[in-house]
Design a protein around this nucleic acid. Structure first.
Length: 457
RNA sequence: UCCUCGCUAGCUCAAUUGGCAGAGCGAGCGGCUGUUAACCGCUAGGUUUCAGGUUCGAGUCCUGAGCGAGGAGCCA
């Protein structure tokens, strides 16, 4: 491949596929991998991906020496390559962003891939795809989803960092259950008995706000429950802001500004990816504050009505509901189908929520909690509440839930030294990404998913 | 933990009442100057998840096991 040789020490000027439109008419060099090859007589089309996008590269037999053209014609899928050629606009050119292609003048093979690459360019079964996650993520759908994920994470940090919040991460190894209910992963911890992988950083965040005012923790969260649905992972990422001097109404204001920002940012920076996924973008463009706010009581009434109106006995059974129950997945789906924006449901029964939630004034059976349910059946993406700020009430709740008081002494201290009304929430990153991408399974929204049946690869 | 379903070529699937193990894609070779999951021809590719059983004969029926999926519960 003599044509492409460079003098030693010469710095190669590499173009990113995402920037290809800025190089129309110019000669460029792209480094990447051959995603697909279509051989068409005197023409060979290579779809090359470089991490930033997918671009079609065209080899024409008449423009190249025979050896090079023959090598291009037989290059195995997924071979790593350095391609040099001239960019031209062509509406027929596929790719992401697409619309431009490279007329190949030179191509070097860095490694010719083995010929038994297992990922077909068609659909795969779930099990096969997940066993090959390390290769599956190269495919456009997975690549697009994970690009959206990175932008969601960036938007999360951007919003908090520019709105006066301090990033203050919380421990992953913890001495006990935060909320006293979930099943946790445990691990031996030197001479201290068992440590547990965190299911939430919230309690630590409550300590942090008394030093820093507004904080957010962002990290992995672990749940050992044997949940086995398209909405569950055993390891997932959660962002948890906590705010001093903040009540439930103010919390909802924060949540809707925050979520709207994420949506806006994804629409701005990842439109091509959403389009490549076939996502209906007009649905996302409607996501602007304010979001509807309904009480648990109103939601319960709506569900009763929906259940009365259906003739489907199976659906009737699934929608069985009495005041005091938590909403199940079928309930959330029915509720959110009635709205085209995320909807707040606030004021849940105290008995179905965690011990630390502030009671509703004058209605002790209800607490100042709020969930944000995403539309299109994606369900709960945020759970939050105003926290109990009174020391004696909190102590009473700890006793009622049979939690070990000694483990919560530091938490109770927060109510003794300058207690204030405060609130916070936790947002599941993967569920949010699944909603934005229109992904059916949450496991596609994290690079290497961990589920009850899977720790490989 | 409970309910339902699935397992056949590298992948996605078909195989009639129990009667010769099949197709498409992928791979290799050849053809074609515009392919978009191209198309055409040829070639290779199988312990039908496993262990038993019924039968002249089992991918198909029966029993058990394994693995996986969807849903419920719980949650983000």
């Amino acid at each position: 491949m003599g044509r492409g040789k460079r003098a030693r020490g010469e710095i190669m000027d590499i173009t990113r596929v995402s920037d290809i439109a800025q190089h129309d008419g110019q000669q460029v060099t792209v480094q990447g991998w051959v995603y697909n090859r279509t051989d068409k007589g005197k023409l060979t089309f290579l779809l090359v991906r470089d991490g930033s996008g997918f671009v079609q590269c065209v080899a024409f037999k008449g423009d190249l020496d025979e050896t090079l053209f023959d090598r291009i014609r037989h290059i195995p899928q997924e071979s790593s390559v350095v391609v040099t050629g001239t960019v031209r606009a062509d509406k027929r050119a596929p790719g992401i962003p697409g619309g431009y292609e490279i007329g190949i003048s030179d191509l070097q093979i860095v490694q010719a891939a083995d010929e038994d690459y297992p990922m077909a360019l068609k659909e795969h079964g779930v099990d096969f795809a997940l066993d090959h996650r390390h290769l599956w993520m190269r495919m456009p759908s997975q690549w697009a989803i994970l690009r959206v994920r990175a932008t969601v994470i960036s938007a999360i940090r951007e919003w908090f960092d520019t709105n006066g919040y301090l990033n203050m991460d919380t421990p992953i190894l913890t001495p006990a259950a935060c909320e006293g209910t979930s099943t946790l992963f445990e691990t031996p911890y030197f001479n201290e008995g068992m440590a547990y992988l965190a299911q939430s950083g919230q309690l630590y965040n409550e300590a942090n706000i008394f030093a820093f005012g507004k904080v957010y923790a962002f990290g992995p969260t672990f749940r050992a429950e044997k949940s086995k649905t398209r909405r569950h992972l055993t390891e997932f990422w959660m962002v948890e802001p906590e705010v001093a001097f903040c009540d439930l109404d103010q919390l909802m204001d924060i949540e809707e500004q925050f979520v709207a920002h994420i949506v806006k940012r994804v629409l701005k920076d990842r439109r091509a990816e959403l389009e490549s996924l076939g996502r209906d973008i007009s649905v996302l463009e409607k996501i602007e504050p304010p979001f509807p706010r309904i009480s648990y009581d109103e939601a319960a009434e709506m569900l009763k009505q929906i259940r009365d109106e259906t003739d489907d006995p199976e659906k009737k059974e699934l929608l069985t509901f009495e005041w005091g129950m938590d909403f199940g997945s079928p309930h959330e789906t029915e509720l959110t189908n009635r709205f085209d924006k995320p909807v707040f449901v606030y004021g849940y029964p105290t008995q179905v929520k965690a011990f630390y939630m502030e009671p509703w004034p004058g209605r002790p059976e209800v607490c100042k909690s709020v969930d944000l349910l995403a539309p299109e059946g994606y369900g709960e993406i945020i759970g939050g509440s105003e926290r109990i700020s009174d020391h004696d009430l909190l102590l009473q709740r700890i006793k009622e839930h049979n939690l070990p008081r000694e483990a919560f002494e530091w938490y109770l201290d927060l109510r003794r030294f300058g207690s204030v009304p405060h609130s916070g929430f936790g947002m599941g990153v993967e569920r949010t990404v699944a909603w934005l991408c229109g992904t059916e399974h949450i496991r596609e929204t994290i690079p290497f998913p961990r589920t009850i049946k899977r720790v490989y690869p």
